[in-house]
């Protein structure tokens, strides 16, 4: 038995919806007959792509116009959810997705379930799957509320699927004002490093951790990544230490990656790192500690010193 309507909080820019948005639509289609979307502009830029993936209707919220998204979007969404009564609203686990879900939760007085990677309907209610303890166990949680259920999903939990749907109908949402809660303004936007293969889409990812010893040694990671046409990533330890920007962090509080090949260099394999890369097809790890937990998920594990193995590998790859 499936639900009637699920609404998806869509994110994206002029170039279209994010992959995560399309994954949410896929998840929603699996459990509901009708999927609609909230979009943060006039709706025209995504009507085709969202329609193609199965969205019947877009609720256009206009741009946040220099305000933070969460308070603005939640105010508009709350009124529509109250009048249209969807079974659920799905969000991607992004900064704006979390903010919006949290604000909406307060406005509607409805619970939010976070960190989900799966969804089913059992006995007519939504059941969500969340990995815990570094992905060693999965908890399944059923909503027991009346009204719209709110759920946040981790990236790469579903496979986006184009189904050749018609262009989505656009309806403009107006009226609600976030009031005092919406008074934080964005005065500038800084984009860090967007050239080369991107972490969340690259086929190969090379990541470095504290085992590199010092910030300069991250060059080994960059060099190896360059040779493999890979994106470079990092553990949180070296992001916190300021060696590399946060946009490179892989893991629970960073990016989720599922490349064909993940290369972990000097990374211990803490559970919070593993949840961000365990879905990789093949994992290679270099670590000098034979007991390092990263080896329990590695297809090829090298017990060795990154300062010896990486330069030698780089030379070998250059020579071929």
């Amino acid at each position: 038995m499936s639900l009637n309507t699920i609404m998806v909080f869509a994110e994206g820019d002029e170039s279209g919806p994010t992959t995560l948005t399309l994954e949410l639509i896929r998840a929603a289609r699996g459990v509901a007959a009708n999927v609609e979307a909230f979009v943060l502009d006039d709706g025209s830029s995504m009507a085709e792509s969202l329609g193609d993936h199965g969205v019947s209707k877009i609720h256009a919220m206009g741009g946040a116009e220099g305000k933070l998204v969460g308070a603005h979007a939640a105010a508009l969404m709350a009124d529509l959810v109250v009048s249209n009564l969807p079974d659920a609203v799905f969000f991607g686990q992004t900064p704006d997705g979390r903010d919006t879900a949290a604000r909406l939760s307060v406005r509607l007085d409805q619970p939010v379930i976070t960190n989900n990677v799966g969804v089913t309907v059992e006995d007519g209610v939504l059941v969500l799957e969340e990995p815990v303890f570094g992905g060693t166990q999965n908890i399944f949680t059923a909503f027991r509320n009346d009204g719209a259920s709110l759920a946040l999903f981790r990236p790469k939990s579903f496979e986006a699927e184009s189904i050749g749907g018609a262009i989505a109908e656009v309806s403009v949402l107006e009226g609600a004002d976030p009031g005092n809660s919406g008074t934080a303004i964005v005065t500038g936007r800084v984009i860090e490093e967007r050239s080369g293969p991107q972490l969340d889409s690259a086929a190969v990812v090379v990541s470095g951790g504290r085992g590199l010893g010092q910030p300069e040694a991250y060059e080994l990671v960059d060099e190896l990544a360059g040779l493999l046409n890979a994106a470079s990533g990092a553990s949180r330890a070296i992001v916190d230490a300021g060696w590399v920007p946060y946009s490179k962090q892989v893991g629970q509080t960073g990016k989720v990656v599922k490349p064909s090949l993940y290369f972990a260099c000097g990374i211990s394999g803490a559970t919070q790192h593993l949840v961000g890369m365990k879905g990789s097809k093949v994992i290679i790890a270099i670590n000098k500690d034979p007991e390092a937990p990263i080896f329990s998920v590695a297809d090829l594990g090298i017990v060795g010193d990154v300062h010896k193995v990486m330069p030698a590998l780089i030379e070998t790859l250059k020579a071929t």
């Binding site: 909503f143 027991r144 017990v303």
Partner: peptide
């Protein structure tokens, strides 16, 4: 207003070949 209805063990990822670097 939510209830954990079951907990399952996740599929373990098998570890593969582990070798010691001798150069």
């Amino acid at each position: 207003r939510q209830e954990t209805i079951r907990v399952t063990e996740a599929e373990e990822r098998e570890s593969g070949e582990i070798i010691e670097d001798d150069g």
